[in-house]
Design a protein around this nucleic acid. Structure first.
Ligand SMILES: [Zn+2]
Ligand SMILES: [Zn+2]
Ligand SMILES: [Zn+2]
Ligand SMILES: [Zn+2]
Lengths: 168, 168
DNA sequence: GACCTTCCGTTACACGATATCATGACGGTC
DNA sequence: GACCGTCATGATATCGTGTAACGGAAGGTC
C-alpha cells in the first residue's frame, strides 16, 4: 500500500488508547488556540468520534455514551458536535448525516480536503482536493453563481476493502 | 444576465402550466425509453417537483398532494421518488435531503452536471462538471480508493439573488 | 382464464435535528 | 457578598427524514 493510501485509510478499528489520548490532546490544543472551551462533554463526544476511523451518527454517539453510564439528551450531543465542528477537529459527512474525526491537522495551510468514504468498512479518508475546489469555483463563476459552501464526497471502497482485507 | 446564467437559473416560481405539461411529457418519454411505468402517482409526484425550480423535500411533496386531496403515506412518496431518480428526471440534493427536477435532458451525453443551490430562493441550477468529476476520479486513484459514487454540491447565491432580484 | 411482476396502501418504527424553557457554572463589577 | 452577563448544559417535546414488513391491487403475458 502506498504512503498516501496508508495515511488516508488506517485500519478502521485501531482504537489504541495511546493514539486516542494523543488525538484528544491535539483537539484540546485546537480548542485553546481558538479560545474555545474543551469541556468534559465535548471531550467525551470527541473521544467517541475519534475512537474509530469510520463515520458515526449523533445517536450512535448517544448510545455509546449511555452504555458507559453517561446519559445525555440528543440536543446536548448536537451542541457538542457543533463546537467540535467549529474547532475543526471533526467533519460532517453530508451524504451520510454522520461525523468523523479529522486526521490531518494541516487544513489551515488553506488547502481543502475531499472526503473518501468506504461503503464496506465505513472508514473515511481525506485527501487534498484544493485544485478540485478551485475548479468548482471557476465553474460557479462561469454560471454567475456566487459560491459560498462547497462539498465533495466520494463513496466507494477503501484500499483495504478493495483488496479484500476489510471485515466481511 | 448571460445565457448560461439564465439557462442555469430561470425564475424559481414560473409555474407556467404549459411548460409543466411539456416537462411531464418529456418525463413520460424518459420512462418509456427505459421501460419504466410512468404511473399516476409518479406523475403527480413529478409534477410537484417540476412545478418549481427550487428543491423540495419528500414531506413537502406529501403536504402539497394532501392539499389537493391526494393523501398518501411517506413510503409511497419515496417509492415514486426512487422511480423518478432511476428514470433520471429528478436529482437528489444530498446536502438538503431534497429533490429537484432535471432541466437538462442531455446527461446521457455522458457529461455529469454540477449542482448549484441558491441559499436565498432555493433554486437549483446545473452546469457541466465533467472535468471536475474526472479530476475527482484521479484524486481517488491517487489514494488507491475505488470510487463509485461522487457528490459535488455548491451552495451560494444564484445570479438573480446576488443581484438583489430574488424574493426577499 | 391463470400467472407473474410491479406498484401501491397500511402500519409501525428508526434515525436525524431543532424549539423552548429552565438550570447551573464561571467571571467580572460594584 | 450581591449582582449580572455569558456560556454550557439539562429536560421535554416535537418535527423532519427514511425504511421494514406485509398484504392487496393493477397490469402485462401466456
Ligand atoms: Zn480534516
Ligand atoms: Zn473499507
Ligand atoms: Zn440534470
Ligand atoms: Zn436565488
Amino acid at each position: 500500500m502506498s504512503d498516501v493510501a496508508r495515511i488516508a485509510f488506517p485500519p478502521p478499528d485501531k482504537t489504541n488508547g495511546k493514539r486516542l489520548a494523543k488525538a484528544v490532546e491535539r483537539a484540546g490544543e485546537e480548542f485553546a488556540a481558538k479560545n474555545l472551551r474543551f469541556t468534559k462533554l465535548r471531550q467525551m463526544v470527541y473521544e467517541e468520534i475519534a475512537a474509530t476511523y469510520a463515520s458515526i451518527g449523533a445517536y450512535e454517539i448517544l448510545a455509546r455514551l449511555a452504555d458507559k453510564g453517561t446519559r445525555v439528551a440528543p440536543i446536548s450531543i448536537y451542541r457538542a458536535i457543533d463546537a467540535l465542528l467549529e474547532a475543526g477537529v471533526i467533519h460532517r459527512l453530508e451524504s451520510k448525516n454522520a461525523f468523523f474525526a479529522c486526521r490531518r491537522m494541516d487544513h489551515r495551510t488553506g488547502r481543502r480536503p475531499l472526503f473518501l468514504s468506504c461503503e464496506k468498512c465505513g472508514a473515511v479518508g481525506e485527501v487534498d482536493g484544493q485544485h478540485i475546489f478551485d475548479l468548482i469555483g471557476e465553474a460557479a463563476v462561469g454560471a454567475k453563481f456566487q459560491a459560498r459552501v462547497k462539498f465533495v464526497e466520494v463513496q466507494g471502497l477503501c484500499p483495504r476493502c478493495a483488496a479484500g482485507g476489510g471485515k466481511e
